[in-house]
Design a protein around this nucleic acid. Structure first.
Lengths: 165, 165
DNA sequence: GGAAAGTATTTCGCCAGCGAAGCTTTCGTC
DNA sequence: GACGAAAGCTTCGCTGGCGAAATACTTTCC
């Protein structure tokens, strides 16, 4: 059984010099991520959240009880520009899910923390999002999942540490 | 050695009910795709192309010599909305890389084809893009690449055929 | 002690993409 | 053969994100 990427590659096999293996991997990852974003949008609508809002709450929530972090930390972790993070936080703050606190000892800095409402919605949203992700990853058994995770990690390490051999 | 996803997961282990394996896989794919887009933007600048332009040329080029396809076919293949595809084609047509031809037998339809200039730039861009992708996927040996491609394909098949068991 | 360099965040102008509405052409049916 | 439904593409209004400049505060260096 072929997927859309197999068909794509077969169509120009021989027409251009290319590494089919690399192309297949990269294109499939792009499509999976896109599919996932679209599927999650639908699921998250049930709690009135968009994908980017969930993602931000999620990394804040991971920070622990207070759920504190500075905008620049979040921007770096989520691979978004600082300006983009300001926009996300504006939205979340307006919705009352997040609170900005100017730091006392260094007043250039801002700390962001989840409100209790933000935490509650985050927890609800995790279930919904989990179902969509499980539907995708669940086709693989636990062992295959471990293999996949390890392979992805090796690539991500390379991207996050360009200097490394 | 941990990547940013390991650190993220470790930080909220036990704080919320969650499948760590699934989370690790999904988040890593998202980051890899994002990293890749950012890295490719830089590389493609050398031929004055943006990522979405390259992607569109690439799927058109795969169609063969004339490089023909209708906007709706491309939109479906590239997982973009029809409106989005109109925008992409506008840009490419203005740049002279692509040509729109109203179909004679069904005048609702439009055929899109690469101009010779479009094909030339596409071929140049493929090299640049290939280097960036190789740098990422190249950490894996050929066998690992095959394993990875196969695992991704199983997931993508599921996403593209929701009915299937 | 005060200017200059540096750091953290926000503002501004712009762009690609989405959903919904609109336009044109074709098909199905009576 | 005419008329309503459907197909194919585009236009419109809006939104999230980016890069660059602006703002606000801190540290360094003479």
């Amino acid at each position: 059984m072929d997927d859309s990427v197999d068909r794509h590659i077969a169509r120009w096999r021989g027409k251009a010099p290319f590494d089919e293996r690399v192309e297949a991997i990269v294109t499939r990852m792009q499509f999976l991520v896109k599919h996932l974003a679209q599927a999650k949008d639908g699921a998250l609508a049930a709690v009135g959240l968009q994908d980017f809002e969930y993602e931000t709450l999620h990394w804040l929530g991971a920070r622990g009880e207070g759920g504190r972090a500075t905008p620049s930390e979040l921007a770096a972790e989520l691979k978004v520009s600082p300006a983009g993070m300001t926009g996300r936080l504006d939205t979340l703050e307006k919705a009352g899910l997040v609170r900005r606190i100017r730091s006392a000892e260094d007043r250039r800095r801002v700390d962001v923390e989840l409100t209790s409402e933000g935490r509650a919605i985050w927890l609800k949203a995790m279930d919904l999002r989990g179902e969509v992700e499980d539907a995708m990853v669940g086709v693989l058994g636990p062992d295959d999942q471990d293999v996949l995770a390890a392979l992805l990690k090796r690539m991500l390490l390379r991207m996050e540490n360009p200097g490394r051999a």
